[in-house]
């Protein structure tokens, strides 16, 4: 059994956005009880992560760490047509994930109790981000 659908999210600048509920809704709708849920982001300047969901400081710290690791406007970067956050967003994407596969068990996403699924917007302005969700199982 295969269920596929697209989700579209509006982001409001750099940061992490919890999409666990929306993914959970898609799994529920698919009717799949046991299988795999594959999430794919169709962009190269935003990405996906599994992250701690209890303390939001974890995610602001992650962003602060990433800011130090991949500085905007680094002299190394020549691909800067869309501003200082353009190339750094591409590098941040490569360092994180474009694709996540999570188990589906008993018709639900089988995540750890403190795990959440997040869309990580790496650009500093607002964007529309498309995700393709494919659930395969029975």
């Amino acid at each position: 059994m295969v269920h596929q659908q697209q989700l579209r999210f509006s982001t409001d600048g750099r940061g992490t956005y919890n999409i666990s509920q929306q993914i959970s809704d898609v799994i529920k709708k698919s009717g799949v009880k046991t299988g795999i849920c594959q999430i794919f982001i169709q962009h190269t300047s935003a990405s996906l992560i599994l992250c701690e969901n209890a303390d939001p400081t974890v995610r602001t710290d992650l962003d602060a760490f990433m800011k130090r690791l991949v500085p905007d406007g680094d002299n190394l970067f020549k691909h800067t047509d869309e501003g200082p956050d353009d190339m750094s967003a591409h590098v941040r994407t490569v360092l994180t994930e474009s694709s996540l596969s999570i188990p589906v068990h008993d018709g639900k996403e089988s995540l750890g109790i403190w795990q959440g699924i997040y869309l990580w917007e790496h650009r500093t302005s607002s964007f529309k981000r498309n995700l393709s969700i494919t659930i395969i199982g029975e």
Binding site: Q4, Q38, F40, S99, S101, N130, S132, T134
Partner: peptide
């Protein structure tokens, strides 16, 4: 892993 949509890679 990438999605397949309409018989093609469902990428951006």
């Amino acid at each position: 892993t990438i999605p397949i949509t309409n018989g093609k890679p469902g990428i951006g």
